[in-house]
Design a protein around this nucleic acid. Structure first.
Lengths: 201, 201, 201, 201
DNA sequence: AATGAATGAGACTTCATTCAT
DNA sequence: GATGAATGAAGTCTCATTCAT
């Protein structure tokens, strides 16, 4: 029978996670101290360790929560559309918007996760797989609709698209420019579908 | 009357840089200690500070040298070819090969540089600009040759290509798989030029 | 209107003490945490402090209870015998058996109590005095029976015997060997009574 | 080519060891902080770790040095005497003197070493073995001289004597009384050789 | 020029103890 | 009476950087 309501507990947890999100986003994992997180959350240093085993676990929780949000957002966005083109566009827009609106966490993700020694095989990678799976499903639909020529290496397309978007978005976001989400999305879509090659007149 | 000849000085500098390259490549900036670098270089801790202002400067020098090599490699590779297609393919291959052969430094670059707070405006970014400029020149040639339809946003294409390649290569490299450079390069070229869309029969 | 009956209270107290005995026995005072004791007892951390002022008090209570048991055991064992020799042997056996059967608490005692800054003058020392008093009584009987030559420094004999037994027993117990209680007791008795010296033929 | 002379280095090492001896002697291992040792030695906290791997290593070094001194002292004391009785007495006196003159370290030894989980098999135990070996040698001489009846369990005698002396000495030392070394030694010798038993007139 | 001993700040983490519920 | 969330002090250890030699 906990004296603090489950809601209050949940609150604390979320408060700490929010704080960690902020602090980790500022300068990365190594630069952030647990004390910073505690101060940001308005709790004592020690309390962090009641909710998280250690600093890594805190970081992972932040990223997992973020990724969960991202995955959900992508699924919803795609689910709202019907045709292949529209779905793909929605996916691209959603992804770009992420960078614009969640700069700090994207930064964290780029900087630390993909590159972490234990990423392969981690639960974060599993989330990543599910996230990119959304695109793969859309692509299959494209093939089914006849809009995409079969025979493409789906993983290659996936990596080229996500990697490309990351670059495009990050450059603008990190350069302190405002990312024109829908314009950029349309250009990316066009490039991805049509390619660079001049159409033989 | 300098005791050490300029050549010897230069040697020391390179020795330390080599050591730093190794050590930083192993586990990133935060994990590497200046002492590790000194030990690897076979010099004292203190000597590092005669050649570099601080740990950051050491890292930046490592990356700048690396980037210089990369830039030169790209220019040579492109210079060897004649036509647009061949040049573009050479560029892609060169870039992919980088990840395969310089895994540690690519890792360092992904993890720490692009994301560093002071990247925008740094000399590394300038090098990056010159590196990607190679691609832009090739693209302009493509337009001139009539192989590429004009009107493309060159920066977007550049980011999509480099970002995409990074993703493709990193996944394979980090997953401990061997990257099939020339096969992958050809697929990427096809995708970039032709796009995904099914050609209307 | 106490909610818990006195019996229940007593139970709680004993439960906590039992738990503390276990936990303290495992690795000593510094290694044991109050939380460990609470968990072992199945109560909350806070409750410990309703029954004991602090961690030290808990430790002292554990040791006092243990010592009480030991004292009682010695008195009973000695009381069962009649002659001096038999009583002394019984005492030695009882003491050795202690180490074999209560290794953890003996360890605790050796490591922390006798050496504690506040041992002289503590209630534990008082218990110790009563415990060793049992031996002194036996010795006096020995003198009265004519089996022991008077003029021995009883305290010295007492310390030599108890200290010696502790060493003998601890070495075997800590060395994970099984202590042969009755054989060892007989040898100790012989040594104590007859000494080392060769009897002039 | 170390810039600090080997002597200076050795000094630092000894300084730290001396400080640790003091601090550890005061209240035991858990009570002592590395910072206390550093302050006592007049050096920074960090320097401790240049000379010792960690806190345990520091403690072990203190104890090993102490034990080395003890061993040497015993060997010299015994070597100075000729006959069995004299040698044994010298050994007992030396041991008792130890407690009187090195109270803090004896305390440390009693409290932490013999009881430490890793004592069996440690280098300290090896030193201990060599120390008690001195007694065994003396006993063998006693047998050879005909002063000691053969057939005694040497290990038992050794443990009874050392354990007994520890108790005797510790009680006096810890009770803030002054230990009468030579008087006590003589009494112990008499007890050990002659035993308690009344000699049949 | 070169060393590496020394510093000292700061990191993560644990835990005895308190107190609102 | 009982809980366990919360505190905050303290602890061990690391490491970038300096400077006497």
């Amino acid at each position: 029978m906990p004296r603090l309501s489950a809601a209050r507990l949940r609150d604390r947890y979320e408060t700490i996670l929010d704080a960690a999100e902020q602090v980790l986003g500022r300068g990365g994992f190594a630069e952030a101290s647990v004390g910073d997180v505690a101060r940001q959350a308005g709790v004592s240093d020690g309390l962090i360790y009641r909710y998280f085993d250690n600093k890594q676990a805190l970081r992972d929780a932040v990223l997992a929560r973020f990724y969960g949000r991202v995955l959900e957002g992508a699924q919803i966005a795609v689910g709202r559309q019907e045709g292949f083109r529209e779905r793909l566009l929605a996916l691209i827009e959603t992804h770009l918007r992420l960078f614009r609106d969640d700069r700090a966490l994207c930064r964290l993700f780029i900087a630390e996760v993909r590159v972490a020694a234990d990423y392969p095989g981690s639960s974060l990678q599993e989330l990543n797989r599910r996230y990119t799976g959304v695109l793969e499903k859309v692509l299959r639909q494209g093939v089914a609709e006849g809009a995409v020529s079969p025979g493409f290496d789906a993983r290659l397309v996936r990596d080229m698209l996500y990697g490309g978007m990351e670059h495009v978005a990050w450059r603008s976001v990190n350069g302190r420019a405002t990312l024109d989400v829908s314009g950029t999305a349309r250009k990316i879509l066009a490039l991805l579908l049509g390619g660079l090659a001049a159409t033989p007149a």
